[in-house]
């Protein structure tokens, strides 16, 4: 008797599950977007690995809005990206630096979509207010080991940085031209960890994206310039770089699709996406 009851219950459960499964497969697949515009086709871009985050974020939100459009992005490095553009294999070339004269000579037009800014931070008690590019380079390569060498108190410098592969580390080392020449005492795997370590360690120095600065740490002036979005847009603060989406000829001459892409980047929605990934908007 008991066995029969158990069997019956089991069979009922299996049947119910299978009906439920049928029900699922009967619902219409995917919601049709009523607002889908007439845009369709593919935008191709190639370039800087540092721009992977922002390019993918923009591509995803753009494709969500225009379901007929595919944005395909390759991340091969700035120079290789611009080469693909001038060679005609992509519509947009991404570069995480200003275009060179020779690149402009080949017809590439510089469209700055965002600016990447990095702040150098120390603990609150540090008396050093200002560092030159040379001093910062020497601190990170291990030539300067004491704050007294750069006008501070007699205290050891604890060099804090990010792990290999981090975009912030890539940008920092690229701008100072010390790629893989840094002597880190701490390689931490998140911005938050860098902030916490620097805030709690007397004599520590670190670098973080500009947008996460708060009052637990002190941002150092670089070459006499404060780390603020205004100074970065004005081009005075050296620890920053433009994110360029270059096109062959001005945007007005591009296909309708590419124009729509740049319109989207300049729209409020696009600006929001750029700010969300921690970048500064150009004025």
């Amino acid at each position: 008797m008991k066995l029969k009851k158990i069997l019956a219950a089991g069979v009922t459960a299996v049947l119910m599950l299978s009906f439920a499964a049928c029900g699922d497969s009967n619902t219409p697949a995917g919601n049709q977007d009523d607002n889908a515009s007439a845009l369709s086709g593919t935008i191709t871009m190639a370039g800087s690995t540092s721009m992977e985050k922002v390019a993918n974020a923009l591509a995803e939100s753009f494709m969500e809005k225009n379901s007929g459009v595919t944005v395909s992005a390759e991340f091969v490095g700035s120079s290789a990206g611009i080469e693909s553009l001038t060679g005609g294999s992509v519509q947009i070339g991404n570069a995480s630096r200003a275009l060179t004269e020779s690149e402009k000579g080949k017809g590439a037009v510089e469209n700055v979509i965002a600016i990447d800014g990095i702040a150098v931070i120390t603990d609150k008690a540090n008396t050093v207010e200002d560092l030159s590019k040379e001093q910062l380079t020497k601190i990170y390569t291990g030539e300067i080991k004491n704050w007294s060498e750069v006008g501070g108190s007699n205290a050891a410098i604890v060099v804090v940085g990010r792990e290999a592969g981090s975009g912030t580390r890539g940008a920092f080392e690229e701008i100072l031209e010390i790629e893989d020449a840094c002597a880190y005492a701490n390689e931490l795997d998140s911005t938050g960890a860098v902030m916490a370590k620097v805030a709690s360690t007397p004599g520590a120095i670190g670098y973080v994206s500009l947008d996460v600065l708060d009052d637990t740490v002190k941002a150092v002036k670089l070459g006499g310039v404060e780390a603020t979005p205004e100074k970065i847009i004005a081009g005075e603060y050296f620890l920053s770089r433009p994110f360029v989406m270059a096109t062959m000829g001005p945007i007005e001459e591009q296909s309708e699709l590419v124009q729509a892409w740049f319109d989207y980047i300049k729209s409020d929605e696009g600006k929001q996406v750029i700010e969300q990934v921690g970048l500064i908007l150009p004025q």
Partner: peptide, 17 residues
């Protein structure tokens, strides 16, 4: 660390990590 390596020019200070 600060006590042991006081005045050392070769040691890289790690902040206790």
């Amino acid at each position: 660390e600060l006590k042991i390596f006081e005045g050392s020019t070769t040691h890289q200070f790690t902040g206790g990590s």
